[in-house]
C-alpha cells in the first residue's frame, strides 16, 4: 500500500490489484469457463482451502472523517500454490468457495511469467468487457434520470 505506484514494484502491485478487482466482480462459472479454455495449466495445491468468514465494513464520519464500524459482510478467502511456486490469494465478498478458489488460481497464474498475458487477455479482458457493458447500461439509465431545470418567466416584467 505504501509503495509508490511509480516504482516497478508499485506498478506490479497496482496491476495485480486491478486483476484482483476484476476477479472479485466475476462469477464462479465465468472463471471456470475461461480457465477451461486455457491450454494445460501447471498443477496447483490448496494452501488454504476456501473459508467463509466476515469482514467489518467501515465508513467515515461525514464521509471523509474518522472511521466507524458500519456492519459486517460475508467474505470467502482462499490461497493456492502452483507447483512452480507462485502463491495466489483471493478475498471475495459473499459465500462463494468455488469462486474464491478459482480467483486464487487466477491470481497465482497472473504472477507466473508464462501465464500473465493469457490471464489478462483470455480471462480478465472478457470479464472486464462484460462488467463495463453492464456499467455503461446502468450509467445510461441513471443519466436519463438527471434533472434538467428550466427557468420559468414570472410576473409582468
Amino acid at each position: 500500500m505504501t509503495t509508490p505506484a511509480s516504482s516497478p514494484h508499485g506498478a506490479e502491485v497496482k496491476a495485480r490489484r486491478a486483476a484482483m478487482a476484476t476477479l472479485a466482480h466475476a462469477d464462479a462459472h465465468e472463471l471456470a469457463d475461461r480457465l477451461a479454455l486455457l491450454p494445460t495449466l501447471p498443477g496447483s495445491e490448496d494452501l488454504r482451502p476456501a473459508e467463509i468468514g466476515l469482514v467489518m465494513l467501515r465508513g467515515r464520519i461525514g464521509g471523509d472523517g474518522a472511521p466507524f464500524n458500519l456492519g459486517e459482510a460475508t467474505v470467502t478467502r482462499a490461497a493456492v500454490r502452483l507447483l512452480s511456486g507462485e502463491i495466489g490469494h483471493s478475498y471475495v465478498l459473499g459465500r462463494a468457495p468455488e469462486k474464491a478458489r478459482l480467483a486464487a488460481v487466477c491470481d497465482a497464474l497472473w504472477q507466473h511469467p508464462g501465464y500473465r498475458t493469457r490471464i489478462e487477455n483470455d480471462v480478465l479482458a472478457p470479464i472486464r468487457a462484460r462488467l463495463e457493458g453492464e456499467r455503461s447500461r446502468r450509467r445510461a439509465q441513471t443519466a436519463a434520470t438527471k434533472v434538467e431545470f428550466f427557468t420559468m418567466l414570472r410576473g409582468e416584467d
Partner: peptide, 30 residues
C-alpha cells in the same frame, strides 16, 4: 453472524468514488 470468524476490518469505504445510482441535494439546485 455469530457463527463466523472475522478476518479483519476493511479500509473505510470511500463514498466520494461511489458508482452513483441516485444523488440529490435539497440545498443546491445546480
Amino acid at each position: 453472524r455469530t457463527t463466523l470468524a472475522r478476518f479483519g476490518a476493511c479500509e473505510p469505504l470511500d463514498t466520494e468514488t461511489m458508482e452513483i445510482s441516485r444523488r440529490i441535494s435539497a440545498t443546491f439546485k445546480d
